[in-house]
Design a protein around this nucleic acid. Structure first.
Lengths: 115, 115
DNA sequence: CAAGCATTTACACAATCGCGTAATTACTCT
DNA sequence: AGAGTAATTACGCGATTGTGTAAATGCTTG
């Protein structure tokens, strides 16, 4: 990925989601804000490594960080997740009515914006 | 990514989605099957490169390939997309009712399976 | 100000990505 | 069989990832 940083927002978001640790961190964050240390606790990873995972999530706009004394309070920022969800939405027709006539779904897809 | 191949399914799917070319290919495929050459046409990329993008999509289980003479007919396989959608689903509460009390949403999240 | 905790950054390393070019592998048709 | 078309694979390249260890920041408290 020669220019992952220069890549579009959506790619950055999907890339951030392409890691179990990062998804797990987001899951934890859905319950409320937490410090880096708290977020790192469940994993067998160095604090430094988790810190970098969080930095990546931050660059993707999926979390925000505030400093509280010597702690960083990390919180979920779901807005960018919505973009990913929106991208996926048109494809829902393909699996929600899995056993229906596919042609109909294909037709409805054509009138929908994708990518 | 030391073991991207050994990574879990969901990560593989999200990773496949983390590229504009691949997302665009999936969009094209939503209109119906196509050959590698047809899929490559819209891009300023080598056929070889597009072929590899498609191979990656195939490894992610997002497309299927059949051989027809010297062509490969590629078609969308949306099932794996559903897994990605399912992962995103619990987070919808965070952006769908953006202006409502966040606490309520957090609470409802807690009873939901995530990751 | 010194000690200590929380987090980040610097450095190193093996693995992978995305890309092109060139060489193969398939299959068809004359 | 030979030529031509479609697609994959091999090779090389620069960039990036994920990871750990170790060094550096930052802030608080004794």
């Amino acid at each position: 990925m020669p220019d992952a940083a220069a890549s579009d927002q959506l790619s950055t978001v999907f890339f951030a989601l392409a890691d179990p640790t990062r998804r797990s961190i987001l899951g934890r964050l859905a319950d409320g804000p937490a410090s880096i240390g708290e977020l790192a606790a469940p994993f067998q990873l160095t604090l430094a490594t988790v810190s970098r995972h969080i930095a990546l999530l931050e660059r993707a706009g999926l979390v925000g960080k505030e400093r509280n004394a010597q702690w960083r309070t990390v919180h979920l920022q779901a807005a960018r997740l919505e973009e990913a969800d929106a991208w996926l939405a048109p494809y829902r027709a393909f699996f929600e009515q899995r056993f229906d006539a596919l042609e109909t779904q294909l037709k409805s897809m054509k009138t929908t914006t994708e990518e």
